[in-house]
């Protein structure tokens, strides 16, 4: 398995997800489940194939982490759909996933086969996979926030809808916390620091506290929906900064152990 086969797997998965999303719109719940799951299965088999070929989990480069992100988005879409039957959620998760797949097709950021010794750790795979899962959940919360803000000009946001958003943030933050902690335990084993205020870590702290603003604000003013939703949008921008933005940030360049792919 290599990046050259990615195109085929990606196209098949995307088509299946699109069919699933359309089925959800048309209230064909059973087909929505089947097609989305099939797409996930095919996409995941590509990840597993890469894992076997590379002889390491595909988590090192930006391209490889995007692979997981593209996988987790429809998965979370499916979970939300199965719980709350939002017909549009699968379309949104598919669109987001397709964006990341296209970035990977156009800019795969290919890499060598070897892991640098510091990455040869049992903490490595859980750290990145849990983080990608958190990113995907918070990405779903962002989609929800944008949708609700866009719609709020016409219809009021319901407390039920806010509850879904809250839950996405809670679960996303729970995963983000575990991701940070696995990173801390790993860093202690590899470098002797559990937290060194490396630029990536500083931005992880910013993002973590920013999501806590949302949570506390929601608990403080449970009737106000618009401001928390806008905060969620800002949080997601900070999250992007933490994920890949710092690679281009002058204050972080050349100083982070987290810079990808070099």
């Amino acid at each position: 398995m290599s990046w050259s086969q990615f195109l085929i797997f990606a196209i098949v998965s995307m088509l299946l997800w699109m069919v699933g999303a359309v089925a959800a719109w048309k209230d064909k719940t059973k087909y929505a489940y089947i097609f989305t799951s099939l797409g996930l299965l095919i996409f995941f088999s590509y990840i597993v194939g890469m894992w076997i070929t590379l002889e390491r989990p595909p988590l090192r480069t930006m391209g490889e982490t995007r692979l997981w992100y593209s996988f987790f988005l429809p998965l979370i879409g499916l979970v939300i759909y199965s719980r709350w039957k939002y017909k549009w959620i699968l379309s949104f998760s598919t669109v987001l996933s397709v964006v990341f797949i296209f970035i990977n097709i156009l800019k795969p950021e290919i890499h060598s086969k070897n892991l640098m010794p510091a990455l040869q750790s049992p903490w490595f795979a859980p750290h990145v996979i849990i983080y990608m899962f958190a990113y995907a959940l918070l990405g779903a919360a962002f989609v929800m926030a944008v949708y609700l803000l866009w719609r709020s000009r016409k219809t009021l946001v319901s407390s039920q809808e806010m509850k879904i958003t809250d839950n996405l943030v809670y679960v996303g933050l729970a995963f983000m916390t575990v991701g940070m902690l696995t990173g801390a335990f790993w860093a202690k084993e590899a470098w002797g620091y559990y937290w060194a205020w490396d630029p990536k870590e500083t931005w992880a702290a910013i993002t973590w506290f920013a999501y806590l603003i949302y949570i506390h604000l929601r608990l403080a003013t449970s009737k106000n929906y618009i401001l928390p939703l806008w905060i969620l949008v800002v949080c997601f921008v900070l999250l992007q900064m933490c994920w890949w933005g710092i690679n281009y940030l002058p204050s972080a360049m050349g100083t982070s152990v987290h810079t990808y792919g070099s």
């Binding site: 205020w197 630029p199 500083t202 702290a205 506290f209 920013a210 506390h216 604000l217 204050s251 100083t255």
Partner: peptide
């Protein structure tokens, strides 16, 4: 102990940490 103290505190924590993230240490 109230959210009215917690939310502004989190804002300034984010603000100061943001300055740190934008300033080369």
């Amino acid at each position: 102990q109230t959210y009215y103290a917690a939310v502004p505190t989190l804002f300034v924590v984010v603000f100061m940490t943001l300055i740190m993230g934008l300033t080369r240490q």
